[in-house]
Each structure stands twice: as structure tokens, then as C-alpha cells.
Design a protein around this nucleic acid. Sequence first.
DNA 1: CGGTAAACGAGACGGTACGTCGTGTCTTTGA
DNA 2: TCAAAGACACGACGTACCGTCTCGTTTACCG
Lengths: 197, 197, 197, 197
Amino acid sequence: MARQPPSSTVPRGRPRDPRTRAAILAAARALLERGGLTAVTIEAIAQKAGVSRPTIYRYWPNAPAVAMAAFLDVTGAPDAARSTRSPYAALRAQFHAVADAFAAPAGRSVAAMVAAAQSETELAKAFRNEFIARNRDATRLLLERCIEDGLIAPPADMELVLDLVFGPLFYRLLMGHAPITRGFVDRLLDTVIPASA
Amino acid sequence: MARQPPSSTVPRGRPRDPRTRAAILAAARALLERGGLTAVTIEAIAQKAGVSRPTIYRYWPNAPAVAMAAFLDVTGAPDAARSTRSPYAALRAQFHAVADAFAAPAGRSVAAMVAAAQSETELAKAFRNEFIARNRDATRLLLERCIEDGLIAPPADMELVLDLVFGPLFYRLLMGHAPITRGFVDRLLDTVIPASA
Amino acid sequence: MARQPPSSTVPRGRPRDPRTRAAILAAARALLERGGLTAVTIEAIAQKAGVSRPTIYRYWPNAPAVAMAAFLDVTGAPDAARSTRSPYAALRAQFHAVADAFAAPAGRSVAAMVAAAQSETELAKAFRNEFIARNRDATRLLLERCIEDGLIAPPADMELVLDLVFGPLFYRLLMGHAPITRGFVDRLLDTVIPASA
Amino acid sequence: MARQPPSSTVPRGRPRDPRTRAAILAAARALLERGGLTAVTIEAIAQKAGVSRPTIYRYWPNAPAVAMAAFLDVTGAPDAARSTRSPYAALRAQFHAVADAFAAPAGRSVAAMVAAAQSETELAKAFRNEFIARNRDATRLLLERCIEDGLIAPPADMELVLDLVFGPLFYRLLMGHAPITRGFVDRLLDTVIPASA
DNA sequence: CGGTAAACGAGACGGTACGTCGTGTCTTTGA
DNA sequence: TCAAAGACACGACGTACCGTCTCGTTTACCG
């Protein structure tokens, strides 16, 4: 089991400056937020971060990949367990937070990353695993606690429930046919996950 | 002697050759289906359609706009009223068709257009009005007939119901975390719009 | 002597509006003076003259041709015979006029036409016959009168003399290494065509 | 710690491949000789030189500038001092060479550059300093030697003499109203700079 | 006086070239 | 070995004119 570090683990030559990576991500994030995906060009990132283009390529293969990294860097998973509250209240709070984020200019970035994930499989996988899966996991956890506590009736198909609560949110975010308000989230949850009794 | 300022309805100059427009859209559609949005370049369209680049710009302002036009050109609204069936059966049939379309390579185009609609307001509006709205309208119509016939219980919020059935479909299409099968559509409809009694 | 007009000489159809030709030439001339030869585009002429592009092509084959026509339209031959003066004084006056013209912004047009005449034989011929030849003819005439009156010694090679007076003028106009002043003209004439006795 | 602002003499980054520049100039020269100025397009140069268009723009701002550079690259100044001969013979030889050059297809290029120099000040300056001035300088030098050796009478205005010998040459080159032969050059020199005694 | 023919404006269309931007790779020097 | 700077080929961009064409409309003449 002892992993044999042949020679590759031994850092040779000039070590990478951690500030370089951070500067690139910060620049990419800024460009992503105003300007959307098309504004995230290697050129612009290099300029803004004070870094040469080849350096960026040493870290990521192309511009969307940097954008995705920048996006995932900030967007942490929701911290599911705010212990004091009831799981049902925590669930509501979590979705209120999502609604707020989607309504804010940051929601623009989410949409951009959805778009980016269409073209390249690698990005799609990253987005799915790092962003989508995390959100679903956090919600699934809370739902299971609700069920344990008898706050909601156990659903026939848990994954379908997750699709039913997240689907409409992304649908509105991406189509923009209607706003994403807390009221909307409330009606959505009341319909899909009604409190039992 | 009074020169009549031509009231804009009078076509002046050489009329446009309808084949030109058709050729451009056909080329764009083909490129969109394999290759996705990034493959739809003015250059490639011009080549494929046997048309000069400036001609394309005479019709549309940029590549995504052509792609959107090509997409909307084929994608007609679902023909809601297959008279013989019950509205509820028609509803199911309609969503089965959507599921089939989304699962087919054409679904790729839908995702691409969602992505395209993120960057430009004009495209977003077109996509919303021509594609999203049409689909919702068709479904809304069928739902109202079902209610009239007492096949389903009248929902508190019709728009929310529409979000609940379309949202998960687009969610799966865009995230790709799970396939869009007829079985999925059935479970979805059974949950959101259960047949009354 | 009675020319038989078969049918081609008889003007059929709507006669050309003389204002059209004039408007085109005026526009071309204006564009030529500021902006030089590159500014004389069919597009710009059409715009400025309020005329359609095909109309211009009905009169001339291409833009430089219009420019040349516009140039030659204004630039009449010098009126050699100002009867009252002595031929020698007339000669001087004529070259002073040329110097003035070359020094003025109109000189810019002359240079432009020299440039234009390089590319196309047709233009070169027109320029040579309409502009160069006329100027040489007028000067040759005056020189011959001077010789008749015994004001100057008869030169061995008249054409060389013409090259010697016109050459340096065009040389300075085109190279711009020195200004074209009346003083320069005077020194030039004094050297090449000194008054006899 | 004080970052030294690189004093421009230190070459940073990848150095330019000298073959690139050479290839561009060679291509431009070839295009210039047959086809004239209008044939010297960036597109054509890139094609012929096996170089990308942006690369050309990295060296020169536009097509005429490349043409001028190509022209000046070959056209070295005449080597005035062929020591063995008398300065007067050298003078004659020099102008015979010019006549030959002007009469050859290369003369076409000279005319083209005169034309090109009309539109842009930068080009005019380059042409004047690199080509016109060099030729005048070489001739002026020989003339001064002739005067020193008492071969010709000292002229009142040296610059005028230079205009008188070069002017007619360019005049004939550009107007094409008469050929540029050695005989013409001889008559020209005999008239303007007669051997004294 | 009505038909015919050309003039003319407007604009479509295939081209060619423009000058620019971004990409991804490579080659230097310097840390 | 990393990092910077910049060279370079490539591909696409959106624009400007070109020269030709197809229309509809207008204006003369001629039978």
C-alpha cells in the first residue's frame, strides 16, 4: 500500500507560486461575473491577473476550464446542518439561499457554467459532480432527516423529488420567463414537499 | 410632384432570393446538430450553404442569431389538439414526444440554444417567446381541457404546475445527471398531475 | 459627308439626365481633393452625389476612371495666347500659374492622378493626352513664338527642353523634397530657357 | 527588490525569426514587380511567404508599408566612387545605370512607390530619405569632385542642378510620354552639366 | 396616345481584402 | 523546473467596396 514516489513527487526546479493560481482564479471570476462566459478569455485573464498566457495553460487546458475552476472555487456546498433548527426549517432556509443566489448577479455565473458544460464532457462532469451533486446531496440529507423526524411523508422516488425542487429553479434561472423569489420557492416546496399533518 | 416617402411596405430594390435564406438556415441547422453551438460559425455556414459571408450578415447580426433562427425554424409548436384522444392521453403523448426529442441528438440543439440565450438578450427573448412560451401554451391548453373534463383536479397555481413539469425535463437535459426516458416522464406526470379519482 | 445613322446614333429610350453626370464628377472631385485617390470609391461617390452605384458604372468602368474624368474636367489647358504680352512674359506667367496650382491643395490631385495612371493603361493614356500633352503643347507654342521673335536661342532638342522645365516641377510635386515656389520657377526658367542677349 | 524597468535594449521573450522578415519582403518584392502596387495585398504576401497575416501586421502597419520596405530593401544607394574612372565618367555611368533600371520592369516598382508615397506621410518620408536623398547625395558627391577637378563649371544652385537631372528622368518614367534611353540621358547631361572646355 | 426602350434608384449577392482578436504552441531569457 | 515575454500559425470575426444582377419606376421617343 505504500505508494512509491519514484521521482515525480519530489519537487524539482522552481516551485509554483501559490499566488499565481489565486490571481488567475480571481481574475477569471471577476470576468465571469460581469461579461459572462464569453468575457472569460485567456487573454483577458492574463492581462487582469498580471500573468503570462502560457502560465495559465500550465494550470488549465482552456478558458472554460479556468472559468469552471473559478466558479467552483467560490461556490462551496451549502452547509446543510445548522443544528439548532428543525430539518424542515433548514430545508426552507437552504432553498431561500439558493433563490437569493440565483436572483443575484452570481446567478448569471451559474447559467454561464451550465452553458459551458454543454460543450465539453470534462467540464460537464466537473460541474455535475462539484456543483449539482453537492446541492442534491445536501438536500437529500435534510430530506432524510425530515423523514426520520416524521416531518414529511417518505416519497416514492427520492431522486424525482430532488428533480422536482431543483428543476424549476434552474428552469427559471435559464429561461428567465419568471423571477426566482422566496415566494416562488415557498410555493414550490409546499407543493413538492408538503409538511405532513 | 409630391414625392411619396415610400411607406416601408413597398419592397424596393432587388428582392431577396428565398433560397438564400433557406440554404443558410439548413447549413446552420446541420452544423448545430453535430458540433453544437461552437461549430456554428459564419465561416462554416457560408461554406456549407454556398453563400458569401456578407450575405449572412445581411440577414442576421451574428452566428448565435443564425443558430437560433435555424433552431426555431424547424422546431414547430407541438400540435396540441389530436382530437380523438382524451386530453389527458394527449398530454402524456405530448410529453413523451418532448422526452424523445430531448433524448435524441436534437436535444443537443435545445441545450445549445439555452446556452446561447444566456449571452444576448435578443436571443433570450426569441427563445423564450418562440420555444418556451409555445410549449407552455400547448401544455396549458391541454391542462385546461383536462380540468374542464374533470380528469384532473384544478391546481392552485397553473404556472407553477408548468414549471414543475418542464423544469425537471430541462434540468436533466442540461445537467445530464440522469437520462430522460418515457418512464421518467410518466413518473413525473403521475406526481405533478395525477389523474383525479 | 452625310453620315448615315443606321440606328445606333439615334438615341432611344430615356435620355441621360445631364445633372447625373455633373453630380458624379462634382462628388468625385470633392473626394479627390481631400482624401486623395483612395477616398474616391464608387460607394462614396454614389452617396455624395445622390446617385445609385450602377448608374456610375453606366458612365465609367471603375473608380479611378471617374477620378480621372473629374480631374480632367476641371483642369483645362492653359490658355497660351494672352495676346498683349510678349511670348516670354506669357511663358513665365504660365509657369507661375502651374507653380501656384501645384502648391495649392489641387496639386494633391495631380499627384494622385499620376499615381492612378500607373496602374491602368487607359488612364495613363488619358492623363498623358489630356493633361501632359496639353501642357507641353501650350508651352511649345509659346517657345516657338519666342524663337520667332528672337527672344530666345533656338534649342537643339525642343522635347528635351520641355522635359527640362516640366520634369523638375513634377519631381518636386511628387517627391516633396522641396517646395514649388515662384522663385524656384524663375531660377528654373532662367537656367533652361535664358533670354537671349 | 526594486524591479528594474527593462531598459528596452534587453530583448525579452522569444526573438523574431529573421527568416520571417526575409520571406515577407521577398514575397512583397515579387508581387510588386509583376502586378504593381495593387497586387501587394497582405493576403497575397501571407500566402506567398508562408506566413500568417497577423505576423505581417506585427512588422508593418499595412500593405503599402511592406511594399515600401521591400522596395527599399533591394534598392541600395548607387556606389558613387568607382575610383579608377574620372568623376565625370562615373557620373555618366551612374545615370546610365539609373536609366537602365528605370527602363527595366524594376522601373515599374519605382513608379509604384512614388504613387504609394502620395497617400501616407510616413511612406513619403521613408521614400524621400531612403531613395531620393540617397540618389541625390551620390550624384552631388560626384558633381563636387568634378568641380574640384575642374571638369565642370561650378553651378550657381547645386540643388537646382540635381532637380534638372533627376526631374526629367522621373517625369518620363511616370508619364511614359517618351522612353528613357541612354541617348536621352546623354543629351540630358550634356545640356545640364556640360563638360567645361 | 400608347408602346417601347433606356435611365435611374434601390438593394441583393458573390467576392476579395481588410485589420483585429483570441487561440494554443513554441522559444527564448531569467529566477 | 517555473515563469515572463513575445513570436508564430491558425481560424474566425465583422466591415468595406467591389462589380454584377434583378427589380420597380420614370421619362422620353416614335409609330
